[in-house]
Design a protein around this nucleic acid. Structure first.
Lengths: 401, 401
DNA sequence: ATGCTCTACTAACCCGATTTAGTAGCTAGT
DNA sequence: ACTAGCTACTAAATCGGGTTAGTAGAGCAT
């Protein structure tokens, strides 16, 4: 059963970021299990967290002890081993009563650690970044870390400036999502979906060999032999690998890729429009195709629009496969068949890896890659190739989100 | 022309969060205008921000001055007015040379301000929250603030716990997006799309009167008289107002709303599935309708699926109007007609309002509301009502994203 | 010689917690 | 009687920067 608590009570005090290990279990429980009572609508609960939190010194004074003692007890330091249980109890009781919470800045200042990490993404509001963030958040919060996010929006100056700002804020580490990475920093860095060779940077990447294979094999088995492709933008860190592996997989299957059936996304910010334009170009070549493999889901959506405009039905006339499986892929009508990147999981793994590196910092400088498996999600935009014979109208099956 | 710099050089030192006002313009420029040189692929730029940043004390020592002097000069304090320009120049030069950056924690510890705000949303990866965040980010970063995000996922305990954690981290203020809010905190709070009467909390809300009017009028003018509705979940802060205003607008237009044509979303996390189920119920009533107004875009997508399964064409047989205009609304085939909430703008306004309140903190405790205007985005899921006569096949027009 | 004003600084404390080195007081052992 | 060892603490330094009250020294006037 999953732990209901946000934080792990049993962590060693030293590695627990906040004041999470500060209290005996009884107090912890009181502090953390919050029962939300329904109060009359609009009636502010009068929690009103006081404007003057107690400090360690005040608490110590109140107890007739020195700040040192209180601090040692509260942090479960071994130096405090000799202090009798009775005193400890008194301290915890007072801490609970006065809702003592160590000042975060003072702590970080001393510890030289912020228990905060920086996340840089192309744009928080695109589904791709957001899904990864969701996974990152999951793990980080559970471990008591918080994170800053920034969107670089593909501006080279920001890609350079933001890490700098992060460092000023003393983040303990960085996660870069789908961002070209060339910096070597003084804190651990993990990239998601980058293909960087920067020393000491760990990459979380998809197994692109498998991704290409699984998608092409699916189309191949459905009888598709004339397959069109939309490549990613030049700047995207994935474009190259993805394409190389598609060529590889095609060779293995004995499929030949026609030049005329390869198009490329043009333009900075992701939008179906780019896929729409790319598909227009494909159609303009007048070379027939029965399937289309798009660089990502967003462009696949635009592609479908272009195909419909050309009076081609999807999937009856042209099957379409996307890439990523962003949330709205399942929401499409027809729902998009796509190669799923386990984005949330990738975010989670990134956070996990980063914290591991932060915790045993110093000893490791190993970069390297962690691969995750893609998964073909077959929905409604692919079907048997018809080779010109139009199949009869198919009722759309229920979506499998 | 928009300021290229992230931060405003001319702010008064006191209100500038980071070390932004710390340098004479020449140094500022050097620090901020970053020219990104293309280096060989994979070659780490050796910026390697050193692991030991200089401290104020070291800098002072190096200059043969006291830390106090350096601090005063760097912060452009009036106490430093009498210090000769020559000394000041020396200080700035050294600061630039050794890349001195004040330690963030030390500063915050002293100033009791973190230049960080907390944002709480239902889920970072849903399009609604993400769009608002994007606007929040825009403004905050420009002002040198950073932000923490957390997703409460509609868990009451987290909605209660996270603000607490934020306060421990000494955030200067909070933004709550689409989150039921009952707490009264010691820092300014701004909610987006909440309808709370908590004292001292500012709400950024949509003009729901207009929203309902504009949507219903549109359908009315297209000749729709039998309109079905999908209401939001019980817990959603918008459900009630939205529905009240729909009834109001209907009355004004002389439209009667049939009980059988009102359905409600059931279920926690937003997904088209909920809209699908709600629509199934509507269809089960066997009461005919020519248009459907959904609670949000996500549910509209599910509704469209349900309609198609029932062999009803959208928009030919049934027009559908969504709400929100999340990104993927424009990506749908057919693209969704919807009432746009200017989410990004709302985020921006929220951030602006919050910072204003933080800056003149103390003097204001005014809650209140700021209204923003909805806008009807007519795309492809609405058309003239046919009253049983099926119109001929329409070519889908090009999307207007 | 004394007082006054001004310039150009600085000493010293503050923010709040952590941590090391140490101490006072007691008991036990030889 | 003296030391060793233990218990139960604490003093004081430290992290890095902000701030207030104040001072040394020069210049000038009386």
């Amino acid at each position: 059963m999953k732990n209901l608590f946000l934080f792990n009570v049993n962590s060693i005090a030293r590695d627990v970021p906040q004041h999470r290990a500060c209290y005996p279990d009884s107090v912890c429980a009181r502090l953390r299990i919050v029962t939300t009572k329904k109060t009359g609508k609009g009636a502010a609960r009068s929690v009103r967290m006081g404007p003057k939190p107690v400090s360690l010194k005040e608490l110590a004074e109140h107890l007739g002890l020195s700040p040192a003692t209180v601090s040692l007890v509260i942090n479960r330091s071994h130096v405090a081993d000799s202090i009798p249980q009775e005193t400890k109890d008194r301290i915890f009781a007072a801490a609970g009563k006065y809702k003592y919470r160590p000042n975060f800045f003072a702590r970080s200042l001393r510890a030289q650690r912020s228990f905060t990490i920086g996340v840089i993404v192309p744009e928080v509001s695109d589904g791709y970044s957001a899904s990864v963030m969701s996974g990152v958040e999951d793990y980080l919060l559970q471990e008591g870390y918080f994170y800053f996010v920034v969107s670089h929006r593909h501006r080279a100056d920001l890609i350079d400036e933001y890490p700098r700002l992060f460092l000023e804020r003393s983040v303990d580490g960085l996660i870069a999502v789908d961002t070209p990475w060339t910096l070597s920093l003084s804190v651990p860095v993990v990239t998601v979906s980058g293909h960087n060779q920067v020393k000491g940077v760990t990459n979380i990447v998809l197994d692109h060999v498998q991704a290409a294979e699984v998608a092409l094999k699916h189309l191949f088995q459905l009888g598709h032999r004339q397959i069109a492709f939309i490549k990613g933008q030049e700047f995207s860190s994935d474009t190259e690998v993805r394409w190389a592996n598609i060529e590889r997989a095609a060779r293995q299957l004995g499929l030949s890729i026609s030049r005329a059936l390869v198009s490329q996304l043009q333009g900075d910010s992701p939008s179906p429009e780019l896929g729409y334009e790319a598909t227009k170009k494909l159609l303009a070549s007048h070379k027939p195709f029965t399937a289309l493999f798009a660089f990502n889901d967003i462009s696949a959506m635009g592609a479908i629009r272009a195909l419909r405009e050309a009076k081609l039905r999807v999937p009856d006339d042209v099957s379409v496969v996307g890439f990523d499986d962003i949330q709205s892929a399942a929401y499409q009508n027809p729902a998009l068949t796509t190669v799923r990147q386990p984005l949330r999981e990738m975010g989670r793994i990134a956070a996990e890896t980063l914290l591991r590196r932060i915790r045993r910092s110093g000893s490791d400088s190993h970069g390297g890659e962690t691969m995750v498996e893609p998964k073909l999600i077959i929905r409604e935009t692919t079907c048997q190739a018809t080779n010109g014979v139009r199949p009869k109208y198919r009722t759309l099956p229920k979506a499998r989100p």
